[in-house]
């Protein structure tokens, strides 16, 4: 149902007690910077914007290799909240090597399994924001592919 790498992360979080879950989320947040584009990388699509659903600029970079596998990189502004940073690192790692279509078809119910009920609240709805942005860039990519095929 979920990509293998993401499934492993979900399973890990589900076994953790609350305090360790928080620690692990913070640890992922610390690693969010590692998901930024590397110097030599060239991308098929880049979507950097600051919009109303997040407190700072978020950039999404999509590279689809010759095997059709997606590689996602992200940049986050300094005001982006910790949980959003955590989800950035989790999703970049968990979705590494999935196809754009697999990402687009991904249900969002796994988010609460990772974050846990205690940390999901009104003001933390932005945890879904990163997934929405990743799906959005994959959709644009696929739409363009289809358009190119039709043309």
């Amino acid at each position: 149902m979920y990509p293998t790498k993401l499934n492993k992360i979900i399973n890990l979080f589900e076994t953790l007690p609350e305090d360790e879950r928080r620690e692990t989320l913070v640890s992922y947040a610390d690693n969010a910077k590692k998901q930024e584009p590397r110097e030599s990388e060239k991308f098929d699509l880049v979507d950097v914007r600051k919009d109303e659903d997040c407190t700072d600029t978020v950039g999404v970079y999509l590279l689809v290799d010759e095997n059709g596998k997606a590689h996602i990189r992200m940049t986050l502004g300094p005001e982006v909240q910790t949980l959003t940073r955590s989800m950035t690192a989790i999703l970049c790692k968990g979705l590494e090597g999935s196809t754009p279509q697999e990402i687009l078809d991904l249900p969002s119910d796994f988010v609460t399994r990772i974050v846990g009920a205690e940390l999901v609240r009104v003001r933390s709805q932005t945890i879904y924001y990163v997934l929405t942005r990743i799906k959005s860039i994959c959709k644009v990519y696929l739409d363009r592919q289809r358009m190119a095929q039709v043309a």
Partner: peptide, 20 residues
């Protein structure tokens, strides 16, 4: 507001009170 911010580092000796 950021519910995990305290966990990422805080003033030495500070305790955390979660508004909710």
């Amino acid at each position: 507001e950021d519910i995990l911010l305290y966990d990422t580092g805080h003033i030495p000796g500070a305790v955390h009170i979660d508004w909710r």
